[in-house]
Design a protein around this nucleic acid. Structure first.
Length: 654
DNA sequence: CGGCTAGCCA
């Protein structure tokens, strides 16, 4: 590229006339070669007073091969208005651009134009059209072209095959695959991909084993395929066995872990990848960041953020969204805002991440303010945006506003509310104590309320100590989800709070006889880049002894300021002392104790918990933040708690 | 004067 620029500069110095041929050559170098610079090519092109067909073809080809092929179509239309006429070389590029953009209308227009113009077309254009129609879902038109074409080559067959795969027509794809006279590796890959798209991973594997030679992509397709079916061990096995890996292989495996609820493994693999000197690209980074966000691993996330800065990777809206999500999910909302504010172009994903981040961090008003800014900026909210907006209403306690936003989804934006949105509404009504209204809401919605929705309402009954509605709702949930131990515990806790010990005990017995248990509380804390996990009362950590000593000190000092454990609803059938012990060793307390002994004074303690914080721990943590002069940030299953100087950001309302 | 088109896994 540098050399090219030098030559061009020389030409300008010597006052060479930039004739269309020389210009085309220059443009070709800029636009088409791998180290190309489309921007420069376009500048050159715009300087040419009268481009000829060759020049037009070159610039159109440049755009059609780039990730942003749209200008190809625009330039083609301009070409038609100019004196240059398109020829048989022009069409394949424009068709490719249409394919790439899935621009069906433009493609059909182009097809009509080609037929009318009488300009010679060859197999390349026909193949392009077959592919274009396949991509746009007009598979019948593709088939017609394929059947009526006087000749066919491997590319024609492959285009037809991928068209069927794209349209999800597995049987037709298989027919083409069986009939084709010759198969390339790409044909096999397309067919394997077809099976995976239709969820038939074992058939895909069968084909993979039968193909004569596999390439890296074949292996990569299988990694992703197994991951889609939730078979992570098989993905990993493929990953380990493959003869050579490229950056996509690594990214595919990291993404499989990140999206398959194994964020720790994702990060381990990310480190391994760097040790193997494979350079991560933006997709790897996004997956790694999302793993950090899941774990609440702030230090690791910051480390990756630094890497992005150092490697001069462009912070586009995709990476920015991942970073905003990371900082929001780690409770560093200021960092998220900082990234958001300097980002020049924000898309709906960026706005949505920021709105949801503010909402979950307890800044309901700000989130709603941002929502109106987003609308002013002309960005159309999607269904995820509304989850964030409703969440903001929920944490801010804006019941009436929530109803308005909820209605506007359908009336203004034409978005059908989904389970998540109903869930938010139940949450909002439930928190505000409008339990009866929440019940009738759930009974009136057009879809059948599932156990998650009723479960959310049951949680609200517990918070408000309403055993009457709780019983009604609880019975409903148990009927829907008879094997969820958490529900039994919740309902029996509700009974226990109002002193209905017999009912509570009966429920526990029912639960026990079914062999159910509640998923254990788990908290994790990051200390110097390492994640430490704690379960209720576990003694697995290497520093267990110190941790329990610290806990004793905490409990002593808590008592000193007049705090006694609230055990009204836990383990009602054990002795009082044991009850106290049970709440003292909740996983978040273990994590806090570990944080206090292992972190620098003044460093905030950040904890991620899989369930919701219980009322007792909430009170205890409030006191601890004051006694030990520590900021404690707990990420609950659905909200953040910032404990500082004896108060919590959720204003004891969650 | 040029020689494209098929695959897309993260």
């Amino acid at each position: 590229m540098t050399l090219l620029l030098q030559i061009h500069a020389q030409m300008i110095r010597n006052h060479f006339f930039l004739d269309p041929f020389a210009a085309s050559k220059l443009i070709e170098f800029c636009a088409v070669s791998d180290f190309g610079n489309l921007h420069y090519a376009r500048k050159l092109f715009d300087q040419i007073p009268e481009p000829n067909t060759f020049t037009w073809n070159t610039i159109i080809r440049g755009y059609s091969n780039s990730p942003f092929p749209k200008p190809s179509l625009h330039l083609f239309n301009k070409m038609l208005k100019s004196r240059a006429t398109p020829n048989s070389f022009t069409f394949p590029f424009v068709i490719k651009a249409c394919s790439h953009l899935a621009a069906c209308k433009e493609g059909e227009q182009l097809h009509g134009f080609i037929l009318k113009s009488g300009i010679d077309t060859d197999l390349f254009s026909v193949n392009g059209l077959i592919h274009m129609y396949g991509t746009c879902g007009k598979i019948d038109l593709a088939r017609m072209l394929f059947d009526t074409s006087p000749e066919r080559d491997l590319v024609s067959w492959n285009s037809m095959l991928s068209g069927y795969v794209n349209c999800g027509l597995l049987q037709e794809a298989r027919n083409v695959f069986d009939e084709m006279p010759k198969r390339a590796v790409v044909s096999w890959n397309a067919m394997i991909n077809g099976y995976i798209k239709c969820g038939e991973i074992d058939a895909a594997r069968d084909l993979f084993d039968k193909m004569p030679t596999q390439n890296v992509e074949s292996w990569n397709i299988l990694i992703a395929g197994y991951a889609k079916c939730g078979r992570l061990e098989s993905s990993r096995k493929i990953f380990n066995e493959m003869p050579e890996k490229n950056v996509v292989s690594w990214s595919a495996m990291i993404t499989a872990y990140a999206q398959g609820d194994h964020p720790k493994e994702a990060l381990v693999l990310f480190d391994e990848m760097k040790n193997c000197n494979v350079k991560p690209n933006w997709k790897t980074i996004v997956s790694a960041l999302s793993a950090c966000a899941h774990l609440g691993a702030l230090d690791r996330g910051k480390q990756i953020h630094r890497y992005v800065d150092q490697s001069k990777m462009k912070i586009d809206s995709i990476i920015a969204t991942a970073l905003i999500d990371l900082y929001a999910k780690c409770g560093c909302i200021e960092n998220a805002v900082r990234i958001f504010d300097v980002l020049p172009s924000k898309d709906v994903f960026t706005w949505t991440a920021m709105i949801g981040g503010l909402a979950v961090n307890g800044h309901g008003e700000k989130a709603l303010e941002l929502f109106s800014q987003m609308k002013e900026a002309g960005v159309r909210p999607n269904e995820v945006t509304f989850v964030g907006v409703l969440c903001a209403c929920s944490h801010g306690g804006f019941v009436e506003m929530a109803k308005e936003y909820f209605d506007s989804m359908r009336t203004i934006y034409g978005i059908q509310p989904q389970i998540e949105h109903y869930g938010c509404m139940v949450d909002i009504l439930g928190r505000a104590g409008h339990l009866k209204e929440a019940v009738s809401f759930l009974e009136s919605i057009p879809v059948k309320a599932n156990s998650v929705l009723w479960g959310a309402l049951l949680g609200a009954c517990w918070i408000h100590g309403d055993a009457k509605i709780g019983e009604y709702v609880g019975d409903l949930v148990i009927e829907l989800e008879p094997d969820d131990g958490g529900i039994y515990v919740l309902l029996s806790n509700i009974y226990a709070t109002v002193g209905r010990w017999d009912d509570a005990r009966n429920l526990r017995m029912r639960m026990k006889s079914k062999g159910l248990s509640k998923s254990p509380g788990r908290s994790s804390i990051e200390v110097q880049g390492t994640i430490h996990e704690f379960y209720v009362g576990d003694k697995l950590h290497p520093r267990t002894e110190e941790i329990y000593l610290m806990l004793d000190e905490i409990n002593l000092r808590l008592r000193f300021v007049g705090y006694t454990p609230n055990t009204s609803y836990v383990l009602f059938d054990v002795e009082n002392e044991e009850k106290e012990e049970a709440v003292s060793y909740h996983s978040e307390k273990l994590a806090v104790a570990f944080g206090l002994i292992s972190m620098e004074a003044g460093e905030p303690i950040r904890i991620v918990k899989n369930l919701r914080v219980c009322r007792d721990c909430h009170t205890a943590l409030t006191f601890i933040s004051q006694i030990f002069k520590r900021d404690i940030i707990v990420r609950d299953r659905n909200v953040f708690h910032y404990f500082r100087d004896g108060s919590c950001s959720c204003r004891d309302y969650w």
